[in-house]
Structures are given as structure tokens and as C-alpha cells.
Design a protein around this nucleic acid. Sequence first.
DNA 1: TTTT
DNA 2: TTTT
Lengths: 148, 148, 148, 148
Amino acid sequence: MAGTLNKVMLIGNLGDDVKMHYFDDKNCIGRFPIATSESYVNKQTNERVTNTEWHNIVVRNKAAEICEKYLSKGDKIYIEGRIKTRKWTDDKGMERYSTEIQCDEFTFLTPKNDQQQSHKPSAANAKPQSQPTAPTDTMPEGDDDLPF
Amino acid sequence: MAGTLNKVMLIGNLGDDVKMHYFDDKNCIGRFPIATSESYVNKQTNERVTNTEWHNIVVRNKAAEICEKYLSKGDKIYIEGRIKTRKWTDDKGMERYSTEIQCDEFTFLTPKNDQQQSHKPSAANAKPQSQPTAPTDTMPEGDDDLPF
Amino acid sequence: MAGTLNKVMLIGNLGDDVKMHYFDDKNCIGRFPIATSESYVNKQTNERVTNTEWHNIVVRNKAAEICEKYLSKGDKIYIEGRIKTRKWTDDKGMERYSTEIQCDEFTFLTPKNDQQQSHKPSAANAKPQSQPTAPTDTMPEGDDDLPF
Amino acid sequence: MAGTLNKVMLIGNLGDDVKMHYFDDKNCIGRFPIATSESYVNKQTNERVTNTEWHNIVVRNKAAEICEKYLSKGDKIYIEGRIKTRKWTDDKGMERYSTEIQCDEFTFLTPKNDQQQSHKPSAANAKPQSQPTAPTDTMPEGDDDLPF
DNA sequence: TTTT
DNA sequence: TTTT
């Protein structure tokens, strides 16, 4: 439809590492959950209440590979994308819905020296320090100027 | 959690009128679906593909009453809010999830002269023309300066 | 700098038509002003105050040509982009600053039947109705799937 | 004007400490600059180009005091607000314009253990660690539930 | 200079 | 279920 907007902007922390799915040698997606939370004081009880919301992030192709390489559970990230609700059928034949955030851009927010040592060899090899083309910029998917 | 952001911005059209639920004389919510869509040309088939996404909007209290009064099926609106996934149990005892947009601010985008005549008496009584304090501004919920 | 975001989202009305500047046969920019406004009730005087803010929009290449073709003074538009402050020297040799919104995406919000008849031949020729590839979608600059 | 939006979202680093201005015992503003940057590879020269953009942030009242207390030069922050261009007259009687971001919400993004030791007594006294009600939540100005 |  |  013309004249519409579907935009999501999140800042949150990864609840798990990036899980990759490869379709063929050119296409893949990465998935990971991020948590946002809000807290407020309940006026009746004077207690502080914290609600955590989990978001299922889906990122594609080169962007997925960058996320897989540089992101680990616990890292903070800015995500920009759109909401997409998928319909699927469970093993009892029931229709189910699952809402995902299709990520278009992202920016890593965890300082490099704060990232925990990861056991993923890909991350260990990343050496982002020596790359003038740091992978932490806001990154529109499909920007072929970026050397990834 | 400190340092997080959960922000949704939508421009879309109402797929149905606003449905109100009253809890007591001070608290109510309004619900309505809005559609966004995107279209692109499939490179293999050269066909234009249009995908429509439906979003369940939830708006509270005074803001809900304003939406109920001035919005009708088909109207275009800008919505700002946050994503919230509710867990519920269906009649077979299965856990289900439903994702909603909790609306914090909105702006009506359908010009008044374009709005179709509604049969709802509340809308017929609205007479927004005679109100200098038009209800179409971006409106943070809970702003008591607004004369509603 | 890594890990930064510079994002502007505006909904407003054009205060003037799009002015084009051509650099060569491949590069051009379009410029136009849009107005946003906010109003509130002054608590002391009980008067409604309205403040209008003007934004200088800059759009490039194909996107500029689409704006020039389909937008006219008075039309409503959604703009997404980034803030850029340019430094220039006035005719007295003084340093001056001018802040612009470099537009990355936009969506036309004025319904076609509401647009005033324009005298620009380009707009008269536009015939967007007969184009399955409507120019009113949210449109990332450089999306070559779009037939413009 | 009804039906408009003026929204800015920035993630950047403070170029200086927060400067406070007190009007009376209830009203104050804080000002600080933040930098965003973008980088790309120039296709002609194959060189990486980085452009830094400076934004003048203005924050009011309690929010200003929180910023002054917890933010220092170099810290990373998420800012949400609106664009406002002020007109002023310089000492030669020339009209000048200055564009500011009037901040409505913010979230601190520098982890506490990464913040440099500041010499400001207010910051030294802050002890945010011992406060369950951490000042780093996204914070709408005027939210009186927050214990500041 | 726009719009409601 | 909307809209173009």
C-alpha cells in the first residue's frame, strides 16, 4: 500500500548468540533474541516493577554474517527494521503466529573492550581493531561499499 | 533494563473501527487493526508483489476515547508506541502469544473532508471544526493540557 | 564514528514547490521546505499557542526527480533522513551555518484526489494511476527495483 | 498544525560536559553537544571518508539535572527529541539561525564501569550502583514516578 | 512559505 | 479487515 510506514527501532541486549541458517551459497539468515525492558513504580504498592520484552530479530545475508561474527550473547545493539508476523501450523495442525523484526540496519553498542571473550573462532579472528572499515557503523543491508 | 529502547512508528489505515473496553469509570482501552504494506518487483517473474502486514493497536484511556470518537475504518493514522507480546492460554490449554502495539502517541492523517460520513452518533457529534483545540495533534497520552 | 545514529522523521506540508539543481546528466538535488507545528495551551493565559518549525529538505537524484514530479506546495509528506549542518561564508565574509535534512526515504501522504491541479507539465504527465509501480511507496534512495 | 511529526533520534558521544543554566528555583536547562558520524569509501579514490556531525542538545528541568549529574564528556547517549531552529541577532545586528535538538527522552549507553572518573562532585556523589532505580532508563521528561 |  |  502506498503511503504507509512500518518501522521498529530497538536498543537491547542479546539473549543468545546468533543462529545462522544457510539456504544456498548466497543466501542466509541469522536469528537472535534481544531484550528490552521498562520499569516504573507501582503507585499502590510503591514497588518498582520491571517488565522485560523479548524481540525475535531476523537479519539476512551479509548483514547476518557480520552479526554472527561480531555479536555475542549479552552484547548491546541498536536495531532498525520492520515488524513481520508469520503464520505457521504447529504439529497439532493449529494455526500459530510468530512476530519477528526484520532488521534493515544495526549498530553495535558494546564497546569492544567490554565484549566477553568468545569461544567462536570466527569472533576470535575478527580483529576489528586493525580494520579501518569497522563493522560497527550503522549499516544498511546491501551497501556494497562495505568490505564484508 | 537500563539503556534500552522499544519504539514502533507506523503509518497505516484502519482495517476496522475502534473497539472499546471499559474497566471502570476511569480506565478503558481501545483496539483497532492497521495495515501497512510494501511492494517490490520480483526479479525472476517481473511481477509486482504486495505484502500487507496487520498490526494490533492498543490505546488507553483518554487517547482511546479520542480515537473512538474521530477514527473510522479506512482512515490513515500515524502511530508511535512500543511492542508488547502477551501470553495467553487458548481453550485447549495451549500457550499462545499475541503481539500488540501499545500506542503512546498518534496523529490523524486523513483530511477531515475526506473522512466518510460515519453512522456512529459519537462521531456525528464530534464537530471537530468548531474546536480550536483540534484532536489531530500528536498527542502524548496523559497530557492534561488537552481539553478532552 | 562507530555506533552512532543520526535519524530524523518528519510529517509535514510543503511550503513551496520542489526546486531542482542539476550538476550533470546523472546527478541532481531537489530542495523544498516543509512545516511542522505543535500547539499547546499556555497555562498562565489559557491561550492556545501554535509554533511552526520549518525544515529544509534535500533529496538526491532519482528520488529528487520523483519529488519534483509528484509533489506540490501544500502536499503532506513523510520524510526520513539525517541532520546535516553546512558551513558557508556570506557576502561579508562571515561564517554561517545552515541545517538541512538529507532525505533517505519518503512517503507521499496527500491522497491523489486531494492534490490541487498543478500547472507543471511534468505533474500533468505523471499519470500515476496507470503505473502499477506507484511512486508513493516508502522509497529508499538507490533501490533499483523501482522503475524510475 | 495538525497531523505533523517532528522527531529526531540520535546515538552519539558527548563532545563536552553538560552546561547548566538556571532561570529560577524551578526551571533550568542543560546544554551539551553530541557527535554522530558516518563513513563510506569514496569510489574514485578508494579512501575511507568519515564525516562527523555535531548536534546541540537542549534538555530541561529534572531531565537536565539528571544529565548534569550522570553524563560526562565522551559518554554515549541515545537522545529523542525535536528539531528547533532559533533566530538570534549577532553583535553586528545580523540575523542568525541556530538549530537545536530539544530533548524529550534519553537513555545512557555508556556502561557504568566504563565511565571515566569525573572531578565533578555531583557525579562523585551519584553512586548510581546503589540505586535500584537506575537513572539510565528511557525517561520521558516530567515522569514524576522516577525518584529524582 | 505549509496545514488545521 | 485497510489502502493505492
